[in-house]
Design a protein around this nucleic acid. Structure first.
Lengths: 295, 295
DNA sequence: CCTATTGCCTGACTAAAGTCAGCAATATGA
DNA sequence: TCATATTGCTGACTTTAGTCAGGCAATAGG
């Protein structure tokens, strides 16, 4: 913990301040950041607002200033007439390129005094910090299966299975009524990374019988960060809290990473307990009721 | 380089923003930072000014506000009546404790979702990034030997040698006229880490003869970061640029790390070329004139 | 003892950042 | 079609941050 605190103080403040003062080009920080965030591809105003976490009024005013300086054009593009899109003008693009170059210079000024091996170590350590920090920012919350984030996950889940299973995948045939995944009959968990859905998992409770885990999916963007493991653990915790003494699940033989995860976390294979047409393997795991109330 | 840029953007901004918004307790950021920096031990106003890099007037005003809130007391303590010292009152100390606790919580919120092995990896990677970033912030500049930072280095150098040599160390007997270490007869380099002197090295030019390296010292706080190596390389570069084709140096047998560094960077031992009473070993290294103009 | 310097404080600013309420245009769902 | 929500814009603020010049008291140096 001391390492984290120390890191936050020294690295974050020092490097952050460097970045902030160096990459503004005389412009106020907020304007420079906005210009940078719009980028060569342009961006919707709403996206900018969430990404930079700005007040709608303040953002609008900043856009007006950049527009006044001839760097940016805001226009309504595409279907919804309320949604406005900011694009860089030629001048704006040139400015952006300068910022890009300066960003490179700044990075180089950090690397320049280091030896080759130090540079390699720094890059490696930075990537590792970034990755693990990302992992720790993944938030796991129960949501209604009809919630937009939940729907997005279920769509991604179905799309992925359809691509991997030999004969495609039709969610309707898999024997899960997604709408039923709400208390007290079950729960649907969604993992998000800064509001972006990146994973999910469902628990179906059958009083007097083992609870059942379904619809576990993790986005490619966060695989290897332990999100799947966290989802499973939380589902098991909730199953135990609801009084189940066992969980079980079925899976397709093409999902080898998932099968590996199940085995690694205490599941063992059992004979078929249902007739899910997509299932090739069935697993079970006993729950420890004492562990349930934790968290 | 991409790793550095990416890291700067994502980690620095995200974590930094978290820190800044979370650790203010409704107070403006600058006030909160100042309160934190004063700390339970108190601090001199001048120290605060350099550490937080604030305008004297602004800092004074911030102190007045904290004083008005009953969190801080500023009084002249100790010898120099101009130097004022800020201390926390009981209320201020309580506030500081809250900040301390919240800082812990923030760190924990990052670690909590991670597995034990991930936590260990994160701590390791953070420490590595911090260390290497520190190394890259060390600045190496020529200074007049009479400059305060240079004097501080020479004092630290003498103090260290006095502690390590069997018979103590008297700079006057070592045959170096420190005032002569200025162009065109020589050069004195000082390494600083955010204005703090952390290392030095001198070059004495003898036209027609080998240049001589003297007074190489690196503070304990930055050892192992390659600062010594950088000082040596820069001295050699300047020697070559001044036309020398060889450098040489003498050293004491108790300075084993230094001897290791000399051997590792291309020096080989030669017979005594002077009668320095503190020297046991003499080294030389041929210079590559082609490399001189670089940088 | 006179003078310059150092360390801090104060007043008078400016600029940037951020907030809030209300408005207009457009979508959406019953 | 109509009520309701969403999206963004504008004007009118307040608060923070930061700068600069001038001034006073304590101290160091001759």
């Amino acid at each position: 913990m001391a390492a984290v605190r120390h890191f936050n103080r020294s690295v974050t403040q020092r490097v952050g301040a460097l970045d902030d003062t160096y990459l503004t080009r005389g412009r106020p920080l907020a304007q420079a950041r906005l210009l940078w965030e719009i980028g060569p591809a342009g961006a919707e105003v709403a996206t900018l607002r969430t990404r930079l976490n700005l007040d709608a009024g303040y953002l609008s005013r900043l856009l007006r200033v950049l527009e006044g300086d001839g760097l940016v054009l805001v226009g309504s593009a595409g279907g919804d007439g309320r949604v406005r899109t900011a694009r860089l003008t030629a001048t704006g693009r040139a400015e952006w390129d300068v910022l890009d170059r300066m960003s490179d210079e700044l990075a180089w000024s950090i690397l320049e005094p280091l030896s080759d091996s130090q540079r390699a170590r720094l890059a490696g350590a930075m990537a590792e910090v970034e990755r693990l920090l990302m992992a720790s920012l993944v938030d796991l919350q129960p949501r209604h299966p009809g919630d937009p984030a939940a729907r997005a996950c279920l769509r991604a889940y179905a799309r992925e299975l359809a691509g991997r299973f030999e004969g495609g995948f039709d969610p309707a045939r898999s024997g899960v009524d997604e709408e039923a995944l709400v208390p007290p009959n079950g729960v649907f968990l969604v993992a998000t990374l800064s509001a972006e859905p990146v994973g999910c998992g469902a628990l179906r409770l059958h009083p007097g019988e083992p609870a059942e885990i379904k619809r576990v999916w993790v986005s490619k963007s966060v695989r290897g960060l332990g999100v799947g493991r966290r989802i499973m653990a939380e589902l098991e915790r909730r199953a135990a809290a609801a009084g189940a003494d066992t969980v079980r699940l079925d899976t397709n033989r093409t999902l080898t990473e998932a099968i590996g995860l199940y085995r690694a976390t205490g599941y063992h294979e059992i004979p078929a307990y249902n007739d899910n047409p997509y299932a090739h393997h069935w697993f079970t795991k006993p729950l420890d009721p004492a562990a349930a109330p934790s968290r």
